[in-house]
Design a protein around this nucleic acid. Sequence first.
DNA 1: GCCCAGGTATAAA
DNA 2: TTTATACATGGG
Length: 297
Amino acid sequence: MYDLAVNISYQKFIMSDTSFKSISEIIFKNDSVILENVSDFDIAPTFECGQCFRFDRLDEKTYFGVAQGKEISITQDKKTVVLQGITAADFNNFWFDFFDLGRDYGKIRKELSLIHPVLEKAAAYAPGIRILKQNPWEALCSFIISQQKQIPGIKMTIARMSEAFGEKTGKAYTFPCAEKLARLELSDLDFLKLGYRDRYILSAAKMVSSGEINLENIRAMPVQDARKELMKICGVGVKVADCTLLYGLQRLDAAPVDTWMKKAEQLFDGGFPFLESPYAGIAQQYIFHYIRSGQIN
DNA sequence: GCCCAGGTATAAA
DNA sequence: TTTATACATGGG
């Protein structure tokens, strides 16, 4: 049973009278939280669909990662998910929202599936994908780094950058804050072999730490304005801007279109009919994962 | 060596 | 407004 003394965000979800429930029961232990009968939640595609770079697969069922300065191990066995190494308060204050557990992905998936048969197939391929609520600054930097790189390389670069300039969390490190990076020189980043991206990172750090760019203000802006504001940062084009919005600012109406998505475009007769959906970003994620997994061609 | 990678800045048409 | 090219680095 739940410890009602630590009631926070999840309780609203548990107590809600809507018919949907993505978890039937939440069990708190000393240093772990057990989610029973999860629906529309599959950790493997969630961590491996290209949306995040700080979670590593330890074995068939377990991933380890860092967010919000905290380490976590996540193990899934069918419909049971165990979040290891966290407190009840951590879960209620952070991880519940990080995994977007209050959102009805089943309902969203059904809505999206009506839009186009290819989208229906893509969503059915990995229905357990959830869009993680990542830190905005970390998401911005991650996708600046991501340009013209492959995912393993992106992960390596971010890990080394965190180790060098972040805070120790135990066996891992947080992603360095903008203020910390803003104090560095380009030569301090040489060992990361960022190439032409090094100046993008430093200038973004300066703009964010000075307040010239305010990510929290951008969160609430209409999507075109938000995109335009993010693109004031050198090295941020429409793709990185949309990734920052979707993965860092919980803007599910932003849908990054990249080389993989362009491969998918022909399947939709030359355009993406879901782009106007409030859940365009989720649709994009289903399709990206589907195409990249080699399900088509 | 050659080509591509979850792109973007810049210049030219 | 649209299209072409350079850009650092690593991996197949």
